[in-house]
Design a binder for these strands. Sequence first.
DNA 1: CCGTAAGGCTACCGGTGAGTAGGTAGCCCG
DNA 2: CGGGCTACCTACTCACCGGTAGCCTTACGG
Lengths: 218, 218
Amino acid sequence: MPDEDQRPPERARRLPRAVRERQILDAAVRVFSQHGYHSASMDEISEVAGVSKPMIYTYLGSKEDLFGKSIQREATRLLEAIQAGVQPDLPPDMQLWHGLRSFYRFVAEYRESWTVLHRQALTVGGGFAAEITAMRTRAIELVAALVVAAGTRKGLGEQTEFSGPGLAAALVGAAESLADWALDHPEISDGVLASWLMNLVWLGFNDLVEGQVWKPSE
Amino acid sequence: MPDEDQRPPERARRLPRAVRERQILDAAVRVFSQHGYHSASMDEISEVAGVSKPMIYTYLGSKEDLFGKSIQREATRLLEAIQAGVQPDLPPDMQLWHGLRSFYRFVAEYRESWTVLHRQALTVGGGFAAEITAMRTRAIELVAALVVAAGTRKGLGEQTEFSGPGLAAALVGAAESLADWALDHPEISDGVLASWLMNLVWLGFNDLVEGQVWKPSE
DNA sequence: CCGTAAGGCTACCGGTGAGTAGGTAGCCCG
DNA sequence: CGGGCTACCTACTCACCGGTAGCCTTACGG
């Protein structure tokens, strides 16, 4: 029985607003992550979303609004994914370990979310860059707290309070960079990635705490 | 000497082409580093350079050309600055140490060069992103070579050849992230920054080589 | 002092893409 | 069955900005 009911473009489905908004946001994240904010056009987003352009404006507002809402949704996802994996009553190294694993699991699963957060969000002048930077700063401070906690545990409070923030910034950067690297090496599991970082950084940090230092020879 | 005439708008200086090109490139790097590629307008660049827009087109070509030449000049500067500080016959850790110091010295001195290379160059779809990524990959491979060299020196060739590239990616990311952090903390010297990284990463790596590993407790 | 080339400018064009006006089609309820 | 509301679209406007045509101005060699 062939399709007697002709429906030329398969459109006119009249979905509820919430569904459309999700579709539009999905499309926006995908297109923004591929082309970046400026090169992404509302026309392409509307096409990918399977929706006409005015819909985007009536539902989500201007291009900047849309980008902001995309960022916000993905950032929330990332934060929730990490928080879901971490238990705050564990020792610092175990917290870091679990946080890292959750992070790498998230990046592998939501590549586009990660791309748009990490690479594209900074390219828009104005509030978003600030917002993202603030979020990253919070992450660094969190890690710094772990580092300082581990340091004071071992009685080296003052030293780690001086270098802690810098070390935390370095560690976060290392984690991000390794995440990018891992995108091209999907065969490496999140556990391996996290353990690499732990071994690199945490062992070195432990040595530091125990008074061992590297210094230029001669 | 009666040429004490009035020169109303201070213009019409008729400088040689090479000088103008330098002025334009300087202005381009500054504007690109502030606004990014897309948001930067040729009008603003021409204004900052103290030159009219057609000059840019006759001397340096299109906007994309201009961006490419800016990137190229700054990349060359960075590479030369690092190569000037490194001696290839030293042991791996000392090479890394000197490379890092040169890098942080460069970033402190040429903030805008660093910004445009690190943050903005990726935002242009096409050849530049590839070029920059390639350059970064070269840096990672260089570091990976150092890491593997240090590993085989101690008889751990196979292990480091597996994890070396990932570790190098992490280390490069850590260095970059710490560079960004250092922009907000100019009181920290390049020596301190480099030694933080060396202590974090190199000590940890040493431990690894010597068979010590971190692993999740319980 | 004239020719010519190089330095330099003002004033415009045209494409692109964000944002909108105004209309149509399906659904619900009296 | 009709009024009205919501989902949804086509087709447009308009500003901005990359790029250029064409002209003026100074330096200098002969």
